[in-house]
C-alpha cells in the first residue's frame, strides 16, 4: 500500500513537471506581452527597457530555468497586468470558485440522487422516463446559453435575481464567503444552477444505472418479500450499494465542474479563478495563465490521486500493481 502511494505520488510530480514544460514553452510562442504594456506612442528604447524589466530579453531556456527555480519556491512569477505574484492572485480567487463549485455539487447531489434512485427503482414508469429524457436534455444543453437565459429571464425580465457578482461577503477564518449572507446566497443561486445542470444529469444517470443493477439482486428481492418499507429498501439497502461507484466517479466530475466554472464565471462576472483565466487570456497575461494551469493541474492530479486511493480502499479487488 505504502509503495503504491509512493508510486502514485511520483507519478503526480512527473505529470506536473510535464505540464509545466508544455505550458511554459507553448506560452512563449504567443503574442509579445511587452507591446501590451507600453503606451501606443512608446519608442523602441522604451519597449526594450520594458522587455528587460520583465526578464523577457533572456533566452527561452534561461527563462524556463528561472521559472522552474521559482516554481519550487511556490513563486510562479508576477502578473504583467497586476504586478503581483500570479499564484497569489489565483489563490485569492480560489474561495469564490470553490464556493461556486461546492454549492453546485450540493445542488446536483440533492436533486440527482433522489431522482436517480426513483428512476432506477421504477424504470418502467412514465415519470422515470421523463426524468431520463430530461437528464439527456441536460447533457445536451449548451452551458453558456443556459446561463444567458437564466440572467435574461430572472435578472433582466423578472428582476428577481441579481445579474452578476458575488454580493455581500463575510470573512470566516480567512476565507471570504458569500454563501453565508442572504445577499450572497442570492447571487450564488443562478450561477450554481447553471453549473450544476451537467453534473446533475451525469450523476442522475449513474445513480439510476446503479440502482437498476442493484434492484435485480437477491437481497433486495428478499427484503421486499420480508415486507420492508419501500423507502427503507431504496435508501437503506439499495442506495448504499450504489453510492460507492457514484462517489468515485463524481470525483472526476468535480474536475469538469471546475473547468466549466470558467464559462459560468465569465457570464456571471463571478470573481473566481476561472474568470481570471479568461481575462488573462484576453490580456496575454502569461504568468497568470501558467499559474492557473499549474494550480488547476495540481488540483486535478490530487483529485485523481484521492479517487484512486478511495477506489482501492473501498473495493479491495482492485489490483494495486
Amino acid at each position: 500500500m505504502i509503495k503504491y502511494i509512493f508510486k502514485r505520488f511520483y507519478h503526480m510530480i512527473l505529470v506536473l513537471f510535464i505540464v509545466s514544460i508544455i505550458v511554459f514553452f507553448v506560452m512563449s510562442f504567443t503574442g509579445d506581452p511587452v507591446l501590451m504594456l507600453v503606451p501606443l506612442d512608446a519608442t523602441q528604447a522604451q519597449i526594450d527597457a520594458a522587455r528587460i524589466e520583465l526578464g523577457l530579453d533572456q533566452p527561452l531556456l534561461v527563462q524556463y530555468g528561472i521559472f522552474l527555480k521559482n516554481l519550487l519556491r511556490g513563486d510562479l512569477g508576477n502578473s504583467y497586468a497586476f504586478k503581483q505574484s500570479a499564484i497569489k492572485l489565483i489563490i485569492e480567487r480560489m474561495p469564490a470558485t470553490f464556493e461556486l463549485v461546492v454549492f453546485s455539487i450540493i445542488i446536483s447531489i440533492f436533486l440527482a440522487i433522489p431522482l436517480g434512485v426513483y428512476a432506477g427503482a421504477y424504470p418502467k414508469k412514465r415519470s422515470s422516463k421523463t426524468i431520463m429524457l430530461a437528464s439527456l436534455l441536460g447533457i445536451s444543453l449548451p452551458n453558456f446559453w443556459v446561463g444567458m437565459m437564466l440572467i435574461f429571464i430572472f435578472a433582466v425580465q423578472l428582476q428577481v435575481m441579481p445579474s452578476f457578482g458575488r454580493g455581500d461577503i463575510i470573512e470566516i477564518v480567512g476565507l471570504r464567503l458569500s454563501i453565508l449572507t442572504k445577499d450572497g446566497l442570492k447571487h450564488l443561486i443562478l450561477p450554481a444552477v447553471m453549473l450544476s445542470i451537467q453534473s446533475m444529469a451525469v450523476l442522475l444517470r449513474l445513480t439510476r444505472a446503479g440502482m437498476m443493477e442493484v434492484m435485480k439482486q437477491d437481497f433486495i428481492k428478499f427484503a421486499r418479500a420480508k415486507g420492508a418499507l419501500t423507502r427503507t429498501i431504496l435508501f437503506k439497502h439499495a442506495l448504499k450499494n450504489v453510492l460507492i461507484p457514484v462517489i468515485t466517479v463524481f470525483g472526476i466530475q468535480i474536475g469538469k465542474i471546475i473547468a466549466f466554472a470558467t464559462v459560468t464565471e465569465t457570464i456571471f462576472a463571478w470573481p473566481g479563478m476561472g474568470k481570471l483565466l479568461i481575462d488573462s487570456i484576453n490580456r496575454s497575461d502569461r504568468p497568470v495563465i501558467v499559474a492557473y494551469l499549474l494550480v488547476v493541474s495540481f488540483i486535478f492530479v490530487c483529485l485523481n490521486f484521492f479517487v484512486d486511493l478511495m477506489y482501492t480502499f473501498i473495493d479491495p479487488r482492485i489490483d494495486l500493481r
Binding site: 505529470v15 506560452m27 504567443t30 474536475g255 473547468a259 494551469l293 486535478f300
Partner: peptide, 15 residues
Amino acid sequence: LSFPATLIALFIMSI
C-alpha cells in the same frame, strides 16, 4: 484524461 477536455481545448485554442 486527468484533465477535462474542454480545458485542454481552451488552452490549445487560446494559444
